[in-house]
Design a protein around this nucleic acid. Sequence first.
RNA 1: GGUCCAUUCGUCUAUCGGUUAGGACGCCAGGUUUUCAUCCUGGAAAGAGGAGUUCGAUUCUCCUAUGGACUACCA
Length: 510
Amino acid sequence: MNSKVRVRFAPSPTGPLHIGGVRTALYNYLFAKKHGGEMLLRIEDTDSARFVPRAEEYIVESLNWLGIDIDEGVGAKTEGAHAPYRQSERKFIYRKYVDQLLEAGLAYIAFDTPAELEAKRTEIANFQYDAKTRGRMTNSLTLPVDEVKKRIESDQQYVVRIKIEPNLEIKVQDLIRGEVIVNSSVIDDKVLFKSSDNLPTYHLANVVDDYLMEISHVIRGEEWLPSAPLHVLLYQYLGWTDVMPQFAHLPLLLKPDGNGKLSKRDGDRLGFPVFPLNWKDPKTGETSSGYREAGYFPEAVVNFLALLGWNPGTDQEIFSMEDLIEQFSLERVSKSGAKFDYEKGKWFNHKYLQIKNNDEIAAIFQQNLKEKNIDVDVEKVKMVVSLVKERVNFVKEIWDQSAFFFESPTQYETKAVQKRWKPETPTQLKELIDVLHTIDDFTPENTEKKVLDWISINNYHIGNVMNAFRISIVGEAKGPHMFDIVALIGKDETISRLKKAIENIKPIEL
RNA sequence: GGUCCAUUCGUCUAUCGGUUAGGACGCCAGGUUUUCAUCCUGGAAAGAGGAGUUCGAUUCUCCUAUGGACUACCA
């Protein structure tokens, strides 16, 4: 057993990193940091046919954005003692272990072509390449030694298969699920190595690399649980049982509606991102939206994801990365899949928007304003942010709640006018203009006092006056406290908007 | 089809044999507010079904049902 905790996140660079993969990376990271261990990133690109350019950079950038630091391997500051960390660059390493298994008689060479295997599968229901069938296939167990040699020398392609002893009980100790027992007869003689590209398959590469990289815990998705017994067997066959890592298989992230694993299509269909970052497919040119570009804070995404499948057993819901590291444990990871609840994701972002200080939010919002060619003082932006941020889930929504701070309304909401614009309103608002003219100290408190005094002295209907005032300034019956708004836009602008409204709004008969 | 895994409010979940089955999101209602929102208070809402074990099962065991994953010379 390794005393030091070393975990790995080992994605395949076949496209953008799925949000479920992000959670796997997060749990690995939390577990490593909790135990003072190391987190490595290894790229599992043993399938030369499925390689997608830029996918690796995407993975690294995603983890960086989320604050999941890589200690070793691809994307780490210094790669580390076990380089290289891309399996395609490690191809020279695996052959040795393949030969070791071959020599020990624990694996064999098979020449069956994909077409032949396909034929077998259609011919025989539930066909499995195993102890029962391998004697009737084309392989080094059925062919004479010199025939095998001849075929290899004439460059005939082959694969190396593990030779699984039937009827053994294979026990997998899972940190989340307990003991899982599988009979070896149900596992087929999986391909470990293919001569076509001289690369091992996932199963072998993964076991060899975890061994060489001294991985102490393998934390991965539940989709790997069925092949875990095979991996245990490989550790045995290779003589590494005493240093075999501990396994933990995480529950899956499911579709919000219906059943099944969360997929890219669900995001398109239901209108939410399933990737951390935007991604443009290099082949199709198709783009998929990401959480970052959708306006999420990385802290919110981390918090949301952490709680999808894990909880501390308390009522705490808001966790910083430090909180998570301190409290995380595999024992408290749930066993069943979690449906992806996008509404709750939005709520987390809302929470973080309230927690964050206004300077940070104002900086982002000011960028949004610049894109609209609105250039205003950062102090004003901060004020606006503080007045409206509690109303929104995302920074980009602030504009919808605050446009009237920056531009005079061009139209007035019919329903509000209908309800609040009375025949006497224009006269009253003209009086209001006079009142405002007399105010020098245009602070919210002072203006409020003066205006409310005027309303009360004249015994006006406060609701009608104030709402007409609001319609004139905002254009609708919405927004923060009136006197905060006018203080911010200033006396001149306030009066000018009132004049404009008096000119343009006509009472609407019901 | 086979193997494995799972099953508490609509959703995420708490409960580690004895609880009025708790919290959160969402939803509904009321209150606060000059408006809208926020906020506050309240409400509706759950142990898949059946056998056991036990004085007592959501909790332990088994069966059934349902869902999921896997079943490639993918990872």
